[in-house]
Design a protein around this nucleic acid. Structure first.
Lengths: 351, 351
DNA sequence: ATGAAAGCGCTAACAT
DNA sequence: ATGTTAGCGCTTTCAT
């Protein structure tokens, strides 16, 4: 049993954290009264309430949330989990994911929740459940569904409070919030077609749900224009710049039979512009490039990126709302948010 | 008092979270034994230990950390706090800060600590103390000291476990970890001088300690070359791209009497390249540009940025080590880490 | 309007 | 080797 340290014991230099019992003693009331006063209960005399509150403030007292939560069986902590690619040992790094994290942080703070941030192996998204199982958090926001649609469905089946940033897939049991990827893909592709481009490459790993959906939009826009999808112009480039660089470079070095590229992230678009120029082609002159995400730096690249804008701030709000909704009993469901095309120099407005 | 819900009560559909008492009942032992078994105590019979552990695993039990922490007076959560500029309402956004957060997340995870991420008004860095006061975290890592050197000293005086990413300042009571800013400033400037540039502008807000130190390195390198600092070539550009853009643009539009710029962040360097080209100057031909941080995207910009590389991974480790050191009684102190110059096209190696 | 006491889920000292 | 019990700091029922 813990030694009960006598607080009046002289020479005990170590300063114990202030707690209610201390306030109570100093105010000459009981702990219950302090608790009530600090929680603004009507049951306690206004004058006493005032006095206790004052005292607590002046002593810089702040409540022990661990104890409070245990007693109230309550917790206002949400786990936000950013997957990383274990094989390539790539870190949280895509600027877009990080923007989303910022937006979620804001949305949570506004609602009085705390955010526990962690990273998880993208192959084991289900390990994110431990945050809830251990009581450290009451729900999970996962940034990206990666290849683990099934794991996510399992988690949802287990009633884990969960929201995923990502695309809406058929037979999806978990709640998701994402941009309208099909629309994004077709907006980007239609714009390139309007510029008169006919040989439009697609860069992105279609094993990822979001990319798969963007590819649908891409294919649809081509069909509308009476064109065929040419599989030779599809490159399964991943999001991690380290891995993607080589893939993009060798593609650009090997083929010259395309006049535009639709990239599934701005980072990819940047790599692509660079690779194209390294092989002597101009952007957008010979090859127009469209990115995806509209990351904070997209407007400051050279050339500034034409890109599909994702509504980051609203996304943060929507993710948090969806999660809190579940926690108050709503049924999880997918949500798709509008996206729009930001025209910049890498694929400028049609002349 | 909480109603004691009889667990054997029939028809109670609501599933309560599994706890030790449940395992104990099913295993036919007492809670203490379960506790001991799960903590691998030698006091419990090996066979029993095995059986209990098995049972817990198969039932997917996980311990309630809130209760455990309350009992053990222990907590393994660290608050990581990213300041934001309240006046401009700018968010966490500088890629470099975000990289550091990622590195800290890794370092904490490796050591079994959790990370609470939050944002704070850069004018009120001291409000970060509430994480510790409330017991939600046992220490604070602050990303950047901004203009609040004094607040930080106050926090340290209050014995708040705290580490700050930033520059080492005179009369500093708090622990800090940072790159060698003076070295960084002089490496960058010397390189530009070697390229034959003589009119080197300095972009950065010298009210921030880190920038102030970089400026010292800059000034020192100029003096070594027998040159004077020209105050007209100093621009107090902030880190927030939104605010900085206009400032940088009007400076570049107004003056043409410089042939190089040393920027205190890569984002600033990007803005500067863009502004220069908008006024018809080539980079690095007419004006060479050096950035700072070596953010993940620096190599993929156009032109790729020559920049002062900060050791992000090591920085994360060092910040965490410094904080944990304080928690085990070490005296806080500053730590400065080496930096180096990464040569790329925006200020290429001398011919 | 206030205080005494029980208990949130866990650990550990003390018994056996 | 295992069980009993007290208590971590708080809230709340119950009694006054």
């Amino acid at each position: 049993m813990a030694k009960s340290k006598d607080p009046s014991e002289p020479g005990s230099g170590e300063q114990r954290r202030l707690q209610m019992v201390d306030i109570a003693r100093l105010a000459g009331v009981s702990v219950s009264t302090v608790s009530r006063a600090l929680n603004g209960s009507e049951l306690v005399n206004a004058e006493t309430r005032q006095r206790v509150a004052e005292l607590a403030r002046s002593l810089n007292y702040s409540i022990n949330f661990g104890a409070r939560n245990l007693r109230l069986q309550e917790n206002k902590t949400i786990a936000v989990v950013v997957p990383y690619d274990a094989s390539s040992r790539q870190h949280i790094s895509d600027p877009f994911f990080l923007s989303i994290v910022g937006a979620i942080a804001d949305a949570l703070t506004d609602r009085g929740y705390d955010m526990l941030l962690s990273r998880v192996d993208a192959d084991r998204l289900d390990s994110a459940a431990h945050w809830v199982d251990s009581g450290k958090a009451i729900g999970v926001v996962l940034i990206g569904q990666w290849r683990q649609h099934d794991q996510l469905n399992d988690m949802a089946a287990r009633k884990l409070p969960l929201v995923v940033w990502g695309g809406e897939m058929p037979q999806q049991l978990y709640a998701s919030v994402g941009g309208d990827n099909v629309l994004g893909g077709s907006l980007a592709t239609r714009h390139l077609l309007q510029l008169g481009r006919r040989r439009i490459a697609f860069f992105g790993d279609a094993k990822l749900p979001e990319v798969w959906l963007r590819r649908q939009g891409y294919a649809q826009a081509l069909r509308e224009a009476g064109l065929q999808v040419d599989p030779a112009l599809e490159l399964a480039a991943p999001f991690e710049p380290g891995v993607a660089t080589d893939i993009v470079r060798s593609f650009c070095a090997a083929r010259r039979d395309f006049d535009a590229v639709f990239c599934c992230s701005d980072v990819l678009a940047l790599l692509t512009s660079q690779a194209l120029r390294a092989t002597g082609r101009s952007v957008p002159g010979e090859v127009a490039v469209v990115g995806y995400d509209d990351m904070p730096l997209a407007a400051y690249c050279d050339p500034p990126l034409t890109t599909v804008h994702q509504p980051v701030g609203e996304a943060g709000e929507a993710l948090v709302e969806a999660l809190l909704g579940q926690l108050s009993g709503e049924r999880p469901g997918p949500r798709t948010m509008p996206v729009c095309l930001k025209l910049r120099a890498s694929a400028p407005a049609a002349a």
